[in-house]
Simulated scan of single mutants.
Amino acid sequence: MHRMLAAALTALIAAALAVGAALGVVAALDTTPEQPNVPLVSFDRAGE
């Protein structure tokens, strides 16, 4: 019974850490500013 409780607690802690890490990654991605979508090279089209 003691091993079952230890295994359940380990799984619960691992799941909580995984959820916390996922939320941390999402929060970090939300705080980074969005990069402008400006092309580095542009080609002029003479016929248009």
Rank of each mutant, 00 (worst) to 15 (best):
M1E: 05
M1S: 02
R3A: 08
R3L: 11
M4N: 08
L5W: 13
L5N: 10
A6L: 12
A6W: 05
A6D: 02
A6V: 04
A6E: 06
A6K: 06
A7P: 01
A7W: 10
A7C: 06
A7L: 12
A8V: 07
A8M: 06
A8Q: 05
A8E: 09
L9F: 14
L9Q: 07
L9M: 09
L9R: 08
L9N: 09
L9I: 06
T10Y: 12
T10G: 04
A11S: 07
A11H: 02
A11I: 05
L12Y: 09
L12R: 00
I13N: 03
I13Q: 04
A14P: 03
A14D: 05
A15F: 15
A15N: 01
A16S: 10
A16Y: 12
L17F: 14
L17D: 08
L17K: 00
L17N: 03
A18G: 04
V19A: 10
V19T: 06
G20W: 13
G20L: 06
A21G: 11
A21W: 14
A21F: 13
A21N: 09
A22G: 09
L23C: 10
L23A: 11
L23M: 07
L23Q: 11
G24W: 14
G24M: 03
G24N: 09
G24C: 01
V25N: 02
V25Y: 15
V25L: 13
V25G: 03
V25E: 10
V26W: 12
V26T: 02
A27Q: 09
A27F: 15
A27G: 01
A28N: 07
A28Y: 15
A28P: 01
A28I: 07
A28G: 03
L29D: 07
L29S: 02
L29C: 07
L29A: 07
D30F: 15
D30K: 04
T31H: 12
T31C: 08
T31G: 02
T31V: 15
P33H: 02
P33T: 00
P33M: 01
P33D: 05
E34H: 10
E34R: 04
Q35I: 03
Q35F: 13
Q35W: 15
P36F: 10
P36N: 00
P36M: 04
P36T: 00
N37I: 05
N37L: 13
N37W: 13
V38K: 01
V38F: 11
V38I: 14
P39K: 00
P39C: 00
P39I: 00
L40D: 11
L40I: 08
V41R: 01
S42Y: 04
S42F: 06
S42L: 12
S42H: 03
S42Q: 11
F43S: 05
F43Q: 07
F43P: 02
D44G: 10
R45L: 14
R45A: 08
R45S: 02
R45M: 14
R45G: 05
A46K: 09
A46T: 10
A46D: 12
A46C: 02
G47D: 14
E48I: 08
E48F: 15
